[in-house]
Nucleic acid binder design. Structure first.
Lengths: 348, 348
DNA sequence: ATGAAAGCGCTAACAC
DNA sequence: GTGTTAGCGCTTTCAT
């Protein structure tokens, strides 16, 4: 037996002490730091020692306490992601890819929901910064100046996603919502649409697409005398019933409408459903364009024309950015516009 | 000025030191521990001191390092959740409720994806246990004996969800998938269905519903000579196209089918879509029952008859269980069957 | 109501 | 290649 038994230390009453590096070290007949090296930088340890340490780890069932390691090395290997909500399945693909890409590199995702209101953002930010994550991924750009300020101050790498801004906090992986609005409008115009209407969730990004659409419509002479496009707004997150109701209302006031751009595929599914229920035929009676290319879009009847965003790429790119930064590598091109694709199917 | 300037300590080269309790304490003219108490247990601190500390916190922009606190107090205020995947929107409601309920109480969610294969579960478990979370929420019950063993050994409170088992690791919030299969079958039988078919994702829980359905069908004499129910299996996570293809295939082999039970509302949407594309009428030509009552189910045309699971309640209950345990309160009834509800709409 | 000392479990820095 | 020492930032314990 090497030396002194472990001294009785401060210890929470009920809980049994868990196994530490020292326990493993004693069993392997080496020092604690050698165990640490064997696990983190095995190249620095002789083959024989390595084997002994691994055996000891196996026998004890030791799992390193990453909180303690993180505290000392100021690397938490934790990345925070903030989404407005999980309920609209829009960000799912991004979160899924992010989680997977981070896990591959030994990082773990912490999830926070900000809601669509700014108010909770502040408390959430405290909770996040308090864990000293190695990075923060925001869906959408950060709005309140206060929050921006704190994010800037704490020095944690930040990736804003799903949007573009001339003034990013740090890194950015996004695309132009205004351009989407414009391109969809131009597309509908080419298809012969002259009386478009909009059904839109009222979150910041959908409003930008709306703006782009209306502007293009005015330019193309699709707005009539009012210089605007009839719009039905639904509270975010937009869901199917909003689409059904939107179509009903818009049809009542604008029976001649010949195209609908929805701010989400879910709304578009609602429109398709309502049309079907009314015996209307899409695209013969009017065109429908969705947004998001959610997984059901291609399989609907008619297959939905929509705007595809590569959510997986957003997630993966964000993960790469954060990890590069965390490991001291510079990110060459920290602001990326990943664009979008108008996917032509049969609904328009 | 109180006393000695802070000694130059070990410090990572590039990074600026962040503000600590000591900085705040010095500014407020108190000791570090008093700052800690002012923030965590304000009742123990005099009103005047409290004010001084709060001012100092404000002025410095101090955000406590929860990793450090967690290390000392062995309370990480972190809860891990494991889902097979985020892609099927089935667990979304649970994760959303869980995140929200935890945030309310000052806990944060860590998300892990296990995939539907058991292989990654082990690595994921290490990553999770390494962070010493105050609790682990599993969607589905834990299968591999190895994983069960480690979970049991590490002493972290565990909630298994979305399923029932006679041998839970610890706590459980679920419902009986077999009963769902049976009840749906009985329901279809009452509605006059005699030639049912199944479209099912091939994950463990869907298979249990399948089993329940087949058993009830046999009992009710709905299976013909084969004592089984024609089934189209789709790989998990089940999506809409699987429903379309499933109906196509089943219709080809069993043109007399008069009812379809789908293991997910997404599959049911596929079935409805395919039926519509073929000019078939639901429920006149055959009945369709989904599973999950996803948010679009009620608004489809025809409105989808389905099985409702209260995912929000699962999330909230799990959060409450974990927090109670973490804060030393016993959970009176740690195994809960929350049941399910067959929601009758128009598709059956 | 407040403080001093100790140490949670790990790893950076510096020996050897 | 391996060990010693110290300390990450906080909170527990014990004293006043």
């Amino acid at each position: 037996m090497p030396d002194t038994p472990p001294p009785a230390k401060t210890r929470a009453p009920g809980r049994r002490a868990s196994i530490t590096v020292h326990d493993v070290a004693r069993l392997a007949g080496v020092s604690a730091i050698t165990v640490s090296r064997a696990l983190n930088t095995p190249a620095q340890v002789s083959a024989e020692t390595l084997q002994r340490v691994r055996d000891a780890v196996q026998r004890t069932g030791y799992v390193p306490n990453l909180l303690a390691g993180g505290l000392r090395s100021s690397k938490s290997r934790l990345v925070a992601a903030v989404v407005p909500t999980l309920a609209g399945p829009v960000f799912l693909e991004t979160i899924e890819a992010l989680t997977a890409a981070l896990a591959e590199r030994g990082y773990q995702l912490m999830l926070g929901q900000s809601g669509y209101a700014d108010s909770r953002e502040d408390a959430l930010l405290d909770a996040i910064i308090g864990r000293r994550p190695d990075g923060i991924v925001l869906t959408g750009v950060m709005h309140t100046p206060d929050a921006r300020q704190r994010l800037l101050a704490c020095g944690i790498p930040v990736v804003e996603t799903w949007d573009l801004t001339p003034t990013p906090i740090d890194m950015l992986v996004g695309f132009s919502h205004k351009r989407i609005g414009e391109e969809v409008c131009e597309y509908l115009h080419r298809k012969g649409c002259r009386r478009p209407v909009l059904i839109s969730g009222d979150d910041a990004r959908a409003r930008r697409r709306h703006e782009g659409f209306v502007r293009a419509a005015a330019r193309l002479g699709m707005t009539g005398a009012t210089a605007t496009v009839p719009t039905w707004w639904v509270p975010a997150p937009a869901k199917l019933p909003g689409g059904r109701e939107g179509l009903t209302r818009l049809l009542a006031e604008h029976p001649g409408l010949d195209g609908v751009f929805c701010s989400s595929d879910l709304l578009a599914l609602g429109v398709l459903t309502e049309a079907q229920a009314r015996g209307l035929s899409v695209p013969r009676d009017f065109a429908v364009v969705g947004m998001g290319d959610l997984d059901f879009a291609a399989s609907l009847h008619p297959a939905l024309t929509t705007v595809r965003i590569d959510g997986t790429r957003i997630g993966r790119t964000s993960a790469a950015f954060i990890v590069d930064r965390a490991e001291g590598r510079a990110v060459a091109e920290p602001v990326v516009d990943i664009g979008f694709a108008l996917v032509e199917r049969h609904s328009a």
